[in-house]
Write a protein that binds this DNA or RNA. Structure first.
Lengths: 305, 305
DNA sequence: TACGGTGACAACCGATGGCTATGACGACGG
DNA sequence: CCGTCGTCATAGCCATCGGTTGTCACCGTA
């Protein structure tokens, strides 16, 4: 007999209405339920509480002492929950009108983000855009776990069939080296010269993207040596100056690493990298569609103002 | 899509617990439910509210903004309901420890009530006794509709198989007459002399009791003339002085009617009336049993102090 | 590489909460 | 006086809910 004292808010609402009307049939109408249903629920509530709340007297209904005692508390519960429900209403609205943009590193690239944003907000002035930095463990930059609604990512993505994307930049890849490295003397390097260097690699969880930045495709089967794993720009920089290895980097990201002690050189013999805006393929929400449309327009220079 | 915003208080309790533990399995233990049940309920709550409350991150659980917004409201609802539940607890206790004694007219009869009460309260000091006056429409004096837990009634009762009783007084019946009535000159009358008089009768709803006070049994088939219906001592007195009829009255109730203009005379040829304490046969509650026991002891003079 | 611990999912089952149809019963009007 | 109306209660039905046990997928760790 574990006496759950929990109650359904609906039952309290029913009770309060009957207490106000002192009339089951009328109360049932106000509540949009049938009279028997209301009758049964009130009896169930009385049974649950072990107390007679209403005295039914053939042609009249009256509150008992217990019913009168319950009424104010029931009203307080209803009111408290009304506030909670309205908070949820707000949360729902906020969720509906907030777009979270995931990204691993700053997209930069010539005002891409501000341009998209300006188009987007002109189409949806009520919407808020939140940027969210996501570590490199997640190559989908938050799309996978719902942290982000759209995201700037490097191709290729894992689970390609779950996402759609628009390529926003195609950039040649450079190599980043400590400035003391022998190859730093060259102004340009062949990838074959790098194949035996220790590489800095993305985390395992990055899947095909890790392989891509190791340029696995260009290595004819011989596996790369891994100098260290990196999950952020800062880690990468530290690993480079510490001499743990070298790594490929998109041309657009070169400025993020060349702070001192690190140099970058163009690489021949590797495919260019592709940077894209991605979203969950089945996600049809207006804000998502508007953002991707804005992005496509910016890329294509459509309707430039 | 009538969006019931109602929520089960249990679900809020579940949510608050998970929000406190940030751990489903531990929360489930605290709540004494299985982990899948808890998981499902929380998801259902999220679905109902159309909002993500908790972010499950494989090896960690965190509140979302919506969850954080809900938490205080949920706590307020729980607290409001806790007060309500405790009020119901009190009401239950009060109901359990209050005995309602129904009666049609004052039992009087030599301190019967105080004697019973004193025995009763010495056995149940925590209990409260409430007396309740009931109109003569209800011959069970409130037992039938639950207004009373025990009641002082005149036999015979309707629905005899629903009640048990102890006879507390057996009194000869007198007749009450306006003092101007021819029979008022006699010091005693035969019922046969009364048979053709108009009688004051109890309401139809009194059932066999109405017939009893009309002394139907003594009338060999010829039906009585009804002068008026009466439902209280005052009505009876007024009807008597107005000359609407005569009526039988228990010896113990004679003082209630002989106020002026009305006289009473003993009646030969009618059975004595029986006054009883009655209760619902299936009612085994301790207070009811204690009261009837006290009554029996007082009647039998057992353990007189 | 096996293991322990996490939350999610599936299948099942009794209770709940709603409906319609009907019943009992007092009030009221012809 | 009798039929009808209005009231709340009951019965029988059905979908959904809220719980169970059993299992899985996943991850961190020994």
């Amino acid at each position: 007999m574990a006496m759950t004292t929990d109650v359904h808010v609906r039952d309290l609402r029913y009770f309060v209405t009957v207490a106000e009307e002192l009339h089951f049939t009328r109360a049932a109408e106000r509540l949009y339920v049938s009279q028997p249903a209301l009758s049964k629920q009130i009896r169930a509530l009385e049974r649950q509480l072990g107390v007679e709340l209403l005295r039914r007297d053939r042609h009249s209904v009256a509150l008992t002492a217990a019913g009168a005692a319950l009424l104010p508390h029931a009203r307080r519960v209803l009111e408290a929950w009304a506030r909670g429900a309205s908070a949820m209403e707000q949360a729902r609205a906020a969720q509906r009108s907030t777009l979270v943009v995931g990204m691993s590193t700053s997209p930069g690239r010539g005002g891409l983000l501000p341009a998209i944003r300006s188009r987007f907000t002109s189409a949806h002035p009520e919407a808020a855009v939140r940027l969210r930095q996501v570590g490199w463990q997640d190559p989908s930059a938050g799309l996978a776990d719902g942290d982000a609604d759209v995201a700037f990512v490097w191709l290729p993505l894992p689970d390609q069939d779950r996402y759609a994307w628009i390529v926003v930049a195609e950039e040649p890849r450079h190599v980043a080296l400590p400035e003391s490295h022998p190859l730093a003397a060259r102004s340009e390097v062949d990838f074959t010269d790098l194949a035996d260097e220790p590489f800095l690699a993305l985390p395992e969880s990055a899947g095909p993207l890790r392989d891509y930045w190791l340029a696995l495709d260009e290595r004819a089967g011989s596996p790369p040596r891994i100098g260290a794993e990196i999950a952020s720009t800062e880690e990468t920089y530290e690993a480079l100056v510490a001499g743990l290895g070298v790594c490929l980097v998109a041309a657009g990201n070169v400025p993020l690493l060349t702070l001192g002690g690190v140099v970058t050189r163009p690489v021949r013999g590797v495919s260019p990298s592709r940077y894209a805006l991605a979203w969950r393929k089945e996600d049809q929400r207006p804000l998502v569609r508007a953002y991707t449309r804005a992005c496509r327009q910016v890329r294509d220079g459509t309707g430039r103002r």
